[in-house]
Design a protein around this nucleic acid. Structure first.
Length: 225
DNA sequence: GCCCAGGTGGGTA
DNA sequence: TACCCACATGGG
C-alpha cells in the first residue's frame, strides 16, 4: 500500500472510530504528575487497576514527588497492590520521583527541552520503556508523539498495514509519517484504538470478528486500503 | 478454574 | 537481534 493510500486509510479509520465512539477523554487523571505515575501503574494492566492504586496514593496523601520518595518501598508497594506487579512498580515509581528531584520536583523544568532529548532522558529512567515514555510525552508534556501499545500493534496487523513482526518503532513511524503532528489527534487516536481493541480485537482472535482484514467494526461499512 | 489486561528489565544464544 | 522469563491483581 502506497503512502497516499496509507494516509487516506488512517484518516478514514480515525473519522469512523471517532464517529462511532466519540471523544475518549484521555488521559484520565488530574494533572501531569498524576499522568506520569498513572502511566507506570497501568503497565500491562487495565486502567481500572491503576486507578485504584492511584486512589490509594491520593487517599494516603502521598501523591507528590517528595512524599513518594520518602515512602518506604514496602509501604508504597502495599498502596499500589491493585496495579499488579506492585513490588516492581514501586521500584519504578521511586526511580521516577528520584529522577524528578534533579529538577526540584518541578515537571515543567524537567520537560523544558526538545522532544527527542526528553524522550531519551525518560527512557533512561528505570521502569520507563517506550510506551510509558511516549505516554508521558503526549499526555503529560503535550508533545505530538504517537503512543503505541499492544492493541495498536494488533489492530494494525489485522488491518494489514504492518507485518507480523512489526516493531514498536515501525508502528509508531507509520502513524507519525502519515498523519499531521497534532497533539489532539494523537491523543484521541490512541485512545480510540484502545477502545476498539478492548471491544473487538481480542488477543486470541486472528482478526476482528466483525471486520475481516480492513473493514472497521464500529460502522460495519468497511474501508478498503 | 481459565484467560487476559493500555510493559519493562534482565538474561541467554 | 530475537526470544524467554519474572513480576503477580482483578474482572469476565
Amino acid at each position: 500500500m502506497g503512502d497516499e493510500r496509507v494516509r487516506a486509510f488512517l484518516e478514514e479509520a480515525y473519522r469512523r472510530l471517532y464517529a462511532a465512539y466519540g471523544p475518549q477523554g484521555w488521559w484520565p487523571g488530574e494533572g501531569p504528575f498524576d499522568v506520569c505515575i498513572g502511566a507506570i501503574l497501568t503497565q500491562a494492566t487495565t486502567w481500572r487497576n491503576a486507578e485504584k492504586a492511584l486512589a490509594h496514593l491520593k487517599r494516603a496523601g502521598v501523591l507528590t514527588p517528595a512524599a513518594l520518595r520518602a515512602l518506604p518501598d514496602e509501604v508504597l508497594a502495599s498502596l499500589i497492590r491493585p496495579s499488579v506487579y506492585f513490588t516492581a512498580k514501586a521500584r519504578k515509581v521511586k526511580a521516577f520521583v528520584t529522577h524528578l528531584a534533579r529538577y526540584g520536583d518541578d515537571l515543567p523544568s524537567f520537560f523544558a527541552k526538545d522532544t527527542a532529548t526528553l524522550r531519551e532522558e525518560l527512557l533512561g529512567i528505570y521502569g520507563v520503556g517506550r510506551e510509558t515514555a511516549d505516554a508521558i510525552l503526549l499526555y503529560a508534556a503535550g508533545r505530538p508523539v504517537f503512543v503505541v501499545d499492544a492493541y495498536t500493534v494488533r489492530i494494525l496487523r489485522r488491518w494489514g498495514l504492518v507485518g507480523g513482526r512489526a516493531s514498536y518503532d515501525a508502528v509508531q513511524r507509520l502513524f507519525m509519517e502519515n498523519l499531521p503532528h497534532d497533539v489532539g489527534v494523537f491523543n484521541e487516536y490512541h485512545a480510540l484504538l484502545v477502545r476498539l481493541g478492548k471491544e473487538v480485537c481480542r488477543k486470541r482472535e486472528p482478526r476482528c470478528p466483525c471486520c475481516p482484514l480492513v473493514s472497521l467494526c464500529p460502522t460495519g461499512k468497511g474501508v478498503s486500503p
